[in-house]
Design a protein around this nucleic acid. Sequence first.
DNA 1: CCCATTTTGTGGTAGTTCCGGCATTTTTAT
DNA 2: ATAAAAATGCCGGAACTACCACAAAATGGG
Lengths: 268, 268
Amino acid sequence: MTKRKQARHHQIIAELTASPVVRISSLATQLGVSAETVRRDIDELTRQGLVERTYGGAASQHIGFQPAVLDRDRMAVIERARIARHAAGLVGDGDVVMIDAGSTTTQLARALAARPLSFTVLTNNIDVAAALGHNPRCRVILAPGDFDGRERGLFGAETTAFLHRFHADLAFIGASGITADGATEVETRAVWVKREILERAARTLLLVDSSKFDSRHLEIVCPLERLGGIVTDRVPGGALGLAIRRAGLNLEIAPVDQNMLDSPQKNV
Amino acid sequence: MTKRKQARHHQIIAELTASPVVRISSLATQLGVSAETVRRDIDELTRQGLVERTYGGAASQHIGFQPAVLDRDRMAVIERARIARHAAGLVGDGDVVMIDAGSTTTQLARALAARPLSFTVLTNNIDVAAALGHNPRCRVILAPGDFDGRERGLFGAETTAFLHRFHADLAFIGASGITADGATEVETRAVWVKREILERAARTLLLVDSSKFDSRHLEIVCPLERLGGIVTDRVPGGALGLAIRRAGLNLEIAPVDQNMLDSPQKNV
DNA sequence: CCCATTTTGTGGTAGTTCCGGCATTTTTAT
DNA sequence: ATAAAAATGCCGGAACTACCACAAAATGGG
């Protein structure tokens, strides 16, 4: 292993920490060697398990990335992005916000990161923290606890005890389902955290996409009237819609983003 | 936007949550449509900023991924992988291990995740938690605190106070440099956590690559004799080597992995 | 300094992807 | 039901990538 070769390997890995994919052709130009050499370099790094080979280039090994989301939850990505974007607009400057663990709330954090506000976030989800961590105007406090790799969050007695010591202006929680009886959840451990958040925040908004309407799960997190409002993508009908109106909840419907069509185009 | 098209978009995004890159050809087969259609789908998703276009496919937008590593630190990736792999071998079944935040220690966690052991990990780094979170034989406890997006870890009074309540058999810490006077570190906030870990663990090993030899930074974490040992990639010479021998430290040199050459090859 | 080894470049072929245009099918609206 | 619009598939040439084998160049001891 010569110095030059080693330096190239380092450079390739460095590129991959910046971008998730690199192309052999661009690396060849950039490193001043032939594409064939780069190809051999990547093959070697692949054997060492440091990068992943792709057609035309290499990709970074996303070790603990997001095998998270359960299969059932995978299908509402676009709706959830809309909901998250809308919810992010409800946060004001200087707010202290609690954010629950969940796929919608992770999206919320990403949307929040783009807003030009100063605020403080308390969360038990590492992706929420990671998304907001680079915003210098935002203070992120992560709760302790037992780490769950599927939910990518922290749960247990340590978590609730920690949250108990704080107070928030606004909180966002997710749920597995919502019925006229209230928000329902599959994960028992997550329920305790959600209840603690409800307890510690002046106002709590539930983030659910319409696929969760009338979906009843193991445990009821709280009755509808305990919530401050619901952010979703469609007006719920039937018994659920009635119950929501009766409970006097603030119902926020995330609008379809029309100007999505001419947003910046990124080419590789 | 028809239902079928929307379903494809969802499916494409779902695939990307599982794998960082997908290929148009495989998607075409999988979705039962022509490659042209998939290409158009991806173009659309790209305009919406939901995925990133690559040659032959698409990649996931890695929002808060790892722009982490400082430029100075970027260059020793391969050495650090070796060190991490070796250090992982030092953990025994049933151990309680504390792991510091840092790029080498993140690698350590990845190596540990592959070992068939039961153990408990306490850490202040979210990548360490994420790497180990899917191992059912491993309990991961994450410390609370103020989240730092650059270091991807937790720091501050909450962090040290939390760690103070635990005890570990073994701890791994990183450092910005090592001199005859001890381990040195740039980040003041990180130093407090490292000191707390030193305090709470029966035995502490320092993980440093050879580029950090004789590199003095703002603060001294601890004198050499306070450490239980050092894991690195090369025998340190000069004053540093002498001081290490004099302090009676256990010096572990990570071997070059010769059988790296016939490890499993992954093709996309 | 020379030899053995490793590393790198080149050339050619085969396989993939890209892009544009156009015909066909499906969906939507009147 | 019918026309307009949208979505999809197919084709062919151009551009790119993969793979292989071999030659040239650089490297590292003895």
